[in-house]
Design a protein around this nucleic acid. Sequence first.
DNA 1: CTGAAAGCGCTTACAG
DNA 2: CTGAAAGCGCTTACAG
Lengths: 349, 349
Amino acid sequence: MVSREKRVTLQDVADDAGVSRATASLVVRGSKSIKPSTHKKVLNSMEKLGYVYDRVAASFRLQRSSTIGVIVTDIENPFYPHILTHIEHVLYEQRFNVLLGMSFESTEKQERVLETMLEHRVCGIIMTPVASTSPALFTKLQNLNIPTLLIGREVDTVNTDYVGTDYRLGAEMAVRHLIEQGHRRIAYLGGSPQGNTSYKERFAGYCQALQQFGLEIDPALIITSPINRDGGTRAVQEAMQLNNPPTACFCNNDVIALGAMIGLQLQGRTPGKHMAIVGFDNVQETETAKPGLSSVSVFQDKWGSEAAKLLLKRINGDQSEPTRIIIPPQLIIRESSTSYSGFHSSSPL
Amino acid sequence: MVSREKRVTLQDVADDAGVSRATASLVVRGSKSIKPSTHKKVLNSMEKLGYVYDRVAASFRLQRSSTIGVIVTDIENPFYPHILTHIEHVLYEQRFNVLLGMSFESTEKQERVLETMLEHRVCGIIMTPVASTSPALFTKLQNLNIPTLLIGREVDTVNTDYVGTDYRLGAEMAVRHLIEQGHRRIAYLGGSPQGNTSYKERFAGYCQALQQFGLEIDPALIITSPINRDGGTRAVQEAMQLNNPPTACFCNNDVIALGAMIGLQLQGRTPGKHMAIVGFDNVQETETAKPGLSSVSVFQDKWGSEAAKLLLKRINGDQSEPTRIIIPPQLIIRESSTSYSGFHSSSPL
DNA sequence: CTGAAAGCGCTTACAG
DNA sequence: CTGAAAGCGCTTACAG
């Protein structure tokens, strides 16, 4: 029924323009060693025949595609779309395309997604590795000579390009802020330590701040969870059921914090007032949240553009030592951490 | 410096296993017309040599890739990540990959992104067309025989598969709700009517609700803007500067509504209390917003999975008439539309 | 069940 | 500045 017309090839264009295929190829890719009159002739034929460049054939010939694989753990965490936008802005200029992968924090899924990307001959990869990612994955990438850049999380013993922030400092600032607000029992909500450097660094910052003020680290206050809203909701509920519950929560990131706010409300508590909260990432939603969510800004927009720029350098042959780009964090204070008034008369303040 | 090893090919695997390339190819793709012992031999060799299937070569040979192009207007609108997750869940099973494009509401960018996708020989496209998308784009896709599915917005005169909601009904429910709350001056904030069917349908619903209650449609209350937070912020500020400002806003979508909340706060107004607000899409953020944002749920998760399933059917040769999948909307009432108390003494209620 | 051969549409040295 | 030729790694009829 449908007319499945044969695709117009460079040969067709060359024939129509009365030149060789090689010449047509040069015109397509904008070589300037072509006579202007020939150039114009070819362009006309392309237009006339409706030629569409066959990037698959070109990739095949060149043994590398013009795609970059980007693997995120959870695109519904607003942290990532923001990064993606900025990655895209940079790649778009160089006519690279994004092959999008989602790992959903599963090592198994991550491996399969990565494998598919290799099959597609992506010429570079930007990824946030899931917790407990095997270093072996990266030897494979190295053997295949595919530049890889990690974003936001590193993998122990793997030495690649990396863009992130000083998580330890960010967490320390956040927790110190809570201590200065009078809090003594401060929980660490969400995430889990297994093989996730960004968790470990944040946790170190959390401990450091407590220790600076001579506060003890209570293991009961370290509550792990999946890194999504639900995880935050359940983590805060768990925290409230403790015999000696915290008065403040430092959350692994904003998604956890926003989930925790919901959890508090479900228990009839008012976030901020009955429980101080600080998040991490400073996603846009912090501003419209109820109450405004204090958070640690990590400037993800810069992560995206820096990551893309660095990866492009690698793709273009830069073989220098792996680079670590660390964007300094900044604490943004909003109502969620400054409006505490305790619950009932049990306020420890 | 770096050892750029030659990639292992199917020929290498075949040689190692002592079979022909054709046989190896059949094994790779899981044909069951191969003797189990041969199958195992080939698998062993693949493993041993570290073979990576060359999808580019295969795509080239087959004259179609295993990628699907997904073009969104703005991935930072949380509406889209949610859809993407569900598209991915379906495609992942069939080993299709997502080539991600972003149009940022620019026809020019959309055209270039689309062109690149054709160059990549995507075997299908799911997209939200930007406003004023030229129907000509789709004749090209049709000629190249690439199944295309529109999501959330249609293009006049273009007859393709479509997944969306009943925008008119959703808007009508939302505006009627505002009227029932006592509002008489209700603005329509954000978006713009040019060539955007989802806007037009929502606007029709808005008008319909007003007319049902015998209320006049005041052009001054129709305030257009770019579809992002900033747009919402500016739109609501514009609304408040009117001689006879609205007491309620129906917003084109949640991103506009959330931006409007910020705009109100910047002017010292409390969203909900000084201005009733209803959004559209019911993104997760509506729940943690201050106040909770009333919105029209459109069940985007279903959009994603339905879209992907339908597209896959087309890719597999289904030539039946274009399908329109319309998921009924549902009004979700929260505090932002039920806590109005007017501003100063000028309350018209 | 397996092998030999053709060919997908490009790009790139290499001649001229 | 342009042309003729080789070849990238697969898959698919076609033989056997």
